[in-house]
């Protein structure tokens, strides 16, 4: 049973890692425009578009 001394902290640590990742994503505004992000992935940056490369 000694193994739980390692297993439990390891499990809690991994859970905490996930939690931190979520909070980081939330704080940096990753969820501000969910719909837009879903659509932006369809935009081909290098196809023959009337737009110049993004600046700024």
């Amino acid at each position: 049973m000694d193994i739980v001394i390692w297993l439990i902290p390891a499990a809690v640590f991994m859970g905490a890692l996930g939690l931190c990742a979520f909070i980081w994503a939330l704080r940096t505004g990753q969820y501000e425009d969910i719909e837009g992000a879903a659509h932006r992935i369809l935009i081909d940056e290098d196809d023959e578009s009337p737009q110049p490369p993004r600046r700024g």
């Binding site: 932006r40 935009i43 737009q51 110049p52 600046r55």
Partner: peptide
């Protein structure tokens, strides 16, 4: 997506 491209592209132009 077309709207995003059209609007952002059109303005950046």
């Amino acid at each position: 997506a077309g709207c995003i491209r059209k609007i952002e592209g059109g303005l950046l132009a």
